[in-house]
Nucleic acid binder design. Sequence first.
DNA 1: TGCATTTGACCGCT
DNA 2: AGCGGTCAAATGCA
Length: 354
Amino acid sequence: MGESMKCEQVGLVDELMQGKELAKQLSDHLLSSSSSHETNEVLIEKILSTYEKVLSMLKANVGESKTNNGTTMGSPCSFTNGSPRSEVMEPEVKQKDVFKKRKTTPKWTEQVKVCLGTSLDDGHSWRKYGQKEILGAKFPRGYYRCTYRNVQGCLATKQVQKSDEDPMICEITYKGRHTCTQVSHLNKAVVAPPSKTKMALGENKRNNHQNNLPQEEKTEPQEAIFSFGSSGLEVKIEDLDHKEDIFPSFCFSSQSIGSENEDNMLSYTMIEDNLMESFLVSPTTSESDVFCLPPCYWGSTGLGQSAQTSESDTTDMVSDPTSVNNSPIMDFDFLLEKLDFDTDFPSNLQELCT
DNA sequence: TGCATTTGACCGCT
DNA sequence: AGCGGTCAAATGCA
């Protein structure tokens, strides 16, 4: 600690300042219609790289000073270094080589928790390639890879495991970034009539696309993502592990939406790259002013504290056709504004679900 | 018939 | 050696 901590704090400030400046530049670019995609991409890449550095530095510090502080919810699965099975906190990232490139294959890792009352659909097609009993875990872990792995060489994988303590909670660990281009049509599938609902609350239509869904996901009893029922809807976004405001909790309700129903509660944690891939509205993947929001992708646009982005992946992030590219980064307030809770809202969504 | 899932075997890492 | 991750043959389903 001591001197090295000071140095790193200075570095953190520097990086954050740089990130801020870059973000400002990007903002200016986005506001000026004359800015090129390339410029924006470069800026995004720089910003992400900056934040990656900061995250790495923070994690290196936190990882040393904090032994197991990630289990604030009492959950055995944590997004951060608290999870014994998590790869989020990669052990090889030591403080002294924080800025060194990893020798291992670049890997981008994130975790998402989703109540099983919701679909685990995250906007991608997954193919199960394995299942394994995990030591100390009640439930086996399912291994999925992108359906388009062979066709498009998409190397994205994910692991799905039910929480030991709460089988209704699923822990999903994503690895790798989707390089396939199969997302957009799925998002479009849930597009609501613009005059009614400006933002679809999840890829409900994907439930009709179940051929691409792993059985584990599509056979969950509470299949409908937002089975809002006749009376109402409550969507609750909370960070299951961190009560901090990095991922604040949101509770949508309106008079028309009606009563609170725990069964309809959706809990999950948004991780930054999910945002980058789907939460952001890309003119290339979304339609006009309609916002499609996969259920896993709700949350703030803050940095996902558990997201792990390698340097090479940062490049991917920009080049990924399904990712943000030159799209403006929307904050949640903006999305809330876009969310039109008129009286047709629940019914619209229900239509979309079916 | 083609695609997805299941599951035992194998491999690599620690 | 044990464990987690992946492979691939077998099986199921539409």
